[in-house]
Design a protein around this nucleic acid. Structure first.
Lengths: 362, 362
DNA sequence: AGTAGAAATATGATCGTTCAAATGAACGTT
DNA sequence: AACGTTCATTTGAACGATCATATTTCTACT
């Protein structure tokens, strides 16, 4: 008869998280509250709270006494109570990009750096998955309604991205990694792709190269456009005819890519300087060069993109264009922080410069 | 005089998240509460709560009425209020592994799959970063004290891992991806490395190979021991002398690795069947084979590990041993769920079988 | 010494939800 | 028709923190 209500409740909890009713079971070490700490230090709740949130209001000796009590009892503020009262969550939502077909490691590095960067502003990352864009957008709505997240970061932007609209409407602070090239203003951080390829080409020009190849994606987007334009404009500025630049459209198929590269190498006026949109495909170029006895770094140059782990590992060190991911993450955290401090602050866009990591291949 | 208290509070909030005091500013769409929904549907708070958490207690018509009110008002339960009351957080903490030097993509895939898997049990992933093991452990303590996480998942286990101890002591539910080979019992999910290499070797034997190479890490650990043992025992079972197995210790240096592989290839009785601890190094083998006119998949076989994106892309398709990461994540979520339901349930270890993905190279 | 004003600390109310217990409605049984 | 049961719904209390405000203590000045 006594456990009737529990019996009654359990079926409803199927598929949900359900903690057994006897709470003491789980909390071997009773979790102390502000009251406990206050009692121990001979002060009130609020003074303890002030020590944590507004220490300038409290007399130094009192602070010391409270601090000791906190350490003795091992007190930590309950997140939910605090967040409920203050209406914040100190959480930043991020949709983890789907795994399928991302050949670059930038997003993984970014997530790591972002986690560290938001910790510096007293927040943490709340991850969620979503199959489509609509799911992602409605998730933002939901998180906002549940006050489960104070801010949002999203990546893999596209032209006229649909995400800023709903977020702005909900007045949910957010920063995108990547421009959205839309009409609505919002904060973003991005890497200057044009500057990246310009760095690479300038470097190659300085080493005497005159015949170039740009390996871009099969379906070019805004990102590729900028990078390719950086290649073109730098070459043009050096007085080299546009015909001396070959553009290869890569596929997701190594055999096809390899053949395209081989054809170019075996054709007339083969390029000696190769710049690729990604490290992995640069490795394919290396393979083809070596197969022909052409030594990368001496007879030819190959430059990749992203400085992924393979770049440092393979081919005796691949020269590559590194995106400043740490700086991107830190800047995003700062822009978020600014929006938290003043929800009406003006949106800000920050374009960061990539860096050329010179190794052996170029 | 009116804004004095605000002036007084702000400095304390430096470096913290501080939401401006006028709350209506941020919440354009006023966030409805259970009371609002109840009023709209002509029922009480609690009935709304019951519709959400224990619908079997509520009359169908009432449920319908409340559901309509919920949709009309766009109500979503406030996470913090709920969590405060129930003492749960529906969050699972995961330390995002450091980026430096992880050449495999398994961890990234795992994080994605884990995010999806815990969503299925009504939870989300709370990410944190930490430089060392002590930081990680004290973070677990902190999250538990703040009741910021209900459970923990950790990966990259090592022999006699120090993490289970404190977590067990705190009675914090957790599941590790990887065995810890320690004395304390706890739930874990792992992939049977021995079975993986056995699959590979059996496949190679069936294709007539008799001279093998195993590419293992420079500093072998428990993971490699198992995999290598799978290679050895399977070879032995086929009646092949142990001398026909060459073991290469890979370094984090492609040039050195390439040379070690080349030496083996150019030596007497060169192996025709290569199994590598990672896809990336398998690619190096492919390169060396091709440089000698040996066609992988015909004259020789190369099998990688992990089925990373490079495997499908490169070399016309690398045969590889795939770890069932989706199943790992799902199993972890289930084991966590079991611990939530009954904190005293017995710990459980699950060993999953890898799969051989046969492509062109073997 | 007395007092105004500031500084330090304490008290009551509140955030939005669920729990526990109480009340009210519906139902079958004798 | 009265009654005990079960079902449906409501009410008061609590989770643990911070806000707003009240109270006490200290400091400086006349």
């Amino acid at each position: 008869m006594n456990d009737k209500p529990r019996e009654d409740t359990n079926p409803a909890a199927v598929g949900h998280l359900h903690i057994a009713t006897e709470r003491p079971e789980r909390f071997t070490h009773a979790t102390p509250t502000v009251d406990d700490v206050g009692r121990h230090a001979g002060v009130s709740r609020q003074t303890v709270s002030n020590v944590l949130n507004a220490p300038h209001r409290v007399r130094p000796e009192t602070i010391e006494r409270v601090r000791i009590a906190i350490n003795t009892l091992g007190y930590r503020a309950n997140h939910h109570a605090r967040n409920l009262r203050t209406g914040t969550s100190r959480a930043i939502a991020y949709r983890i990009p789907p795994v399928a077909g991302h050949l670059n490691s930038v997003m993984d590095t970014f997530l790591h750096e972002l986690t560290e960067a938001v910790e510096a502003i007293g927040c943490h990352i709340l991850l969620f998955a979503s199959n489509d864009l609509d799911g992602e957008i409605s998730k933002y709505w939901e998180l906002s309604a549940q006050s489960a997240a104070d801010g949002v970061v999203f990546s893999e932007t596209e032209r006229d991205d649909r995400r800023p609209g709903p977020l702005l409407e909900r007045r949910m602070p957010f920063v995108s990694f990547g421009r959205t090239w839309g009409t609505q203003e919002h904060s973003w951080v991005d890497v200057d792709g044009r500057a990246g390829t310009r760095l690479a080409i300038d470097h190659l020009l300085a080493h005497g190269h005159r015949r170039f190849a740009w390996l871009g994606p099969r379906n070019p987007g805004v990102v590729n456009d900028e990078r390719e334009q950086g290649v073109r404009s730098t070459i043009a500025a050096a007085g080299i005819p546009a015909a001396d630049l070959h553009v290869v459209s890569l596929r997701d198929d190594a055999t096809a890519d390899r053949k395209a590269i081989a054809d170019l190498l075996d054709g007339p006026d083969a390029p000696t300087a190769w710049v690729s949109m990604s490290d992995l495909q640069a490795l394919t170029v290396l393979g083809e060069l070596e197969a022909r006895g052409i030594v990368p770094g001496r007879d030819a140059a190959v430059i990749g993109f992203d400085d992924s782990p393979v770049a440092a590992y393979a081919g005796g060190g691949l020269t590559t264009i590194r995106q400043p991911i740490t700086a991107v993450a830190k800047t995003i955290a700062q822009l978020l922080s600014a929006q938290f401090a003043d929800p009406n602050s003006d949106p800000q866009g920050v374009l960061l410069e990539p860096e050329l990591i010179v190794r052996r291949t170029g």
